[in-house]
């Protein structure tokens, strides 16, 4: 069965890239435009993994992580944050907030796939 990825990013370009790259890899990709939208979709999309941008209107990526972790059904769903910085500081902040890992933008498809393979069976 195809695994569902919920990708949350306020940039349409980035959403399109994730959609194209992940669909080509056989994932079912669901998109959301900001944190609130993402958490609303979370419930019925039931993703195997969540990918979220950090800087978004309405609700940022940290809010998304909180929302995912505080929902019993998704408590252990992998959450990857998208970041343009490879700075260690942001990664640690994300980890402390409950993120599973990160994807550094701009990503390469091979890298993206190897990361996802480590997180979803």
């Amino acid at each position: 069965m195809r695994k569902t990825v919920l990708a949350i990013d306020d940039s349409r370009t980035m959403r399109d890239m994730l959609r194209v790259a992940l669909t080509a890899e056989g994932f079912d990709v669901q998109l959301a435009e900001d944190g609130i939208d993402g958490l609303e979709k979370l419930r019925h999309v039931q993703p195997a993994v969540v990918i979220t941008d950090i800087n978004m209107p309405r609700l940022d990526g940290f809010g998304v992580i909180d929302g995912v972790r505080s929902d019993e059904r998704f408590r252990r769903t992998p959450v990857l944050v998208l970041t343009t910085e490879s700075a260690a500081e942001l990664k640690q902040r994300a980890k402390a907030a409950g993120a599973t890992g990160w994807i550094v933008k701009p990503f390469e498809r091979t890298k993206l796939v190897s990361v996802l393979n480590r997180l979803v069976a």
Binding site: A24, E25, T84, S86, R109
Partner: peptide, 21 residues
């Protein structure tokens, strides 16, 4: 190194695009 934001194009070949792998 750690402030680097180096442009890196996204390669979007087909799934079986050999050079990618």
């Amino acid at each position: 190194g750690d402030v680097a934001f180096s442009p890196m194009p996204l390669a979007l070949g087909d799934a079986d695009d050999a050079p990618d792998f």
